[in-house]
Design a protein around this nucleic acid. Structure first.
Lengths: 212, 212
DNA sequence: TAGATTGTTAATCGATTAACAATC
DNA sequence: TAGATTGTTAATCGATTAACAATC
């Protein structure tokens, strides 16, 4: 299989979302042209993207919605369970824990961790316990945690992440305002909120300058 | 000025972040080569990117860190104040309101809105009041709000956004799990958390398959 | 002046779009 | 069978990298 580009991978979850909507509308089949109209991308691109992974469609028919949805789900690793913990039980950590759909899609959030004694053992978030961050290393080892969400400031996030890498964690969902500089075999998916907001304000100023 | 590509715009906040770190380390000048080593991009790309906007450097010297930082800040619209409200005062809305640095960077969060009577008028987040969502239209008109952050489920988010567009809002920071299908003069910056997480699990499965 | 490093042009690479034969 | 639409090759477009003259 040839190397899949980042651009293609970024589009997969979006296809998945639109297919989910079609399923909810009881739509059984869809052509690349129909999907292209809904999603504002070219039909050509949809067909190219999908054919990176295999022939999911059928000439003269199009794509079976449910089948394509399931296949993309498999590509995205949503057919297996992922054990995840959240480090940092502030608003952001709690928001992640509460993001309802995650559980339905095979994500199992087994614990949150924080250093705040007022939270540890005293509060649950969506039924999940908040544990003492000093116990995280043993926990991760024993529970075979696959994904660690980092919802705490960059200093402590970097420290914790380094320790966790040493004990075998291979995937981080990083909300801290820094790039964790690990080697390529450690997967880091960044969510840099402030950078997203800056893209927004860039576009605002760009528009303002145009109207001058 | 020629059309700036999305890829370039996405990189600007990242340059900005690294320059900020250099300032904090009292570094005065930096060459594209040095920056390229720090950031894992090519020096050529840095020079190309910056030259879309003007000659910020000096041959034989490199770039003055503070000057370049300020110039990129201006490009990103961070030299002016942006009035923003947050719709949805759940964990995510509160997390956004508490994201400390926003205020320092010229973002003024003037209110949160929610439909939950237990929150309205009863709680403040980082000093900001939670208001009744039924009052949002008048508020936005009177207060001249520029950016609306949508931190609520897709159904209500879509409804509210449509009403707000009618009364003149031009920019949304959208955390709802949907693409708001507005015309091009409405700026929408999406933060699709679940799609980010799926990119992560894609990479996990990809790696697992490779090792088979 | 010599050395360093930008700004910028040209070359390469990769991604998107167009076109159409294959085939359901 | 005829019509529709995919899968796939070829053409185009755009973004990244390389190279080097300009210049501080």
């Amino acid at each position: 299989m040839r190397k899949i580009s980042k651009a293609v991978i970024t589009r997969l979850p979006r296809y998945y979302r639109y297919l989910d909507e079609l399923i909810q509308q009881d739509v059984e089949r869809v052509s690349s042209k129909e999907l292209s109209d809904m999603m504002n991308v070219t039909a050509s691109q949809i067909r190219q993207d999908l054919n990176n992974f295999g022939g999911f469609g059928q000439q003269g028919y199009g794509y079976n919605v449910k089948y394509l949805y399931d296949e993309i789900g498999k590509l995205l690793g949503l057919d297996v369970t992922h054990k995840m913990i959240i480090v940092g039980a502030g608003n952001l950590g709690q928001a992640i824990a509460n993001y309802g759909n995650f559980r339905n899609r095979g994500f199992e959030i087994t614990a949150l961790f924080d250093k705040n004694k007022d939270l540890i053992g005293k509060k649950t978030v969506n039924g999940t316990e908040i544990r003492d961050i000093s116990t995280i290393i043993d926990y991760v080892k024993n529970e075979n945690i696959e994904i660690v969400a980092l919802a705490l400031p960059k200093g402590p996030a970097t420290d914790i992440a380094e320790k966790l890498v040493e004990c075998g964690v291979k995937a981080f969902w990083n909300f801290a305002h820094t790039d964790l500089g690990f080697s390529d075999d450690i997967i880091v998916e960044n969510v840099h909120l402030s950078e997203s907001l800056m893209k927004l304000t860039y576009r605002i100023s760009e528009k303002a300058n145009k109207n001058k």
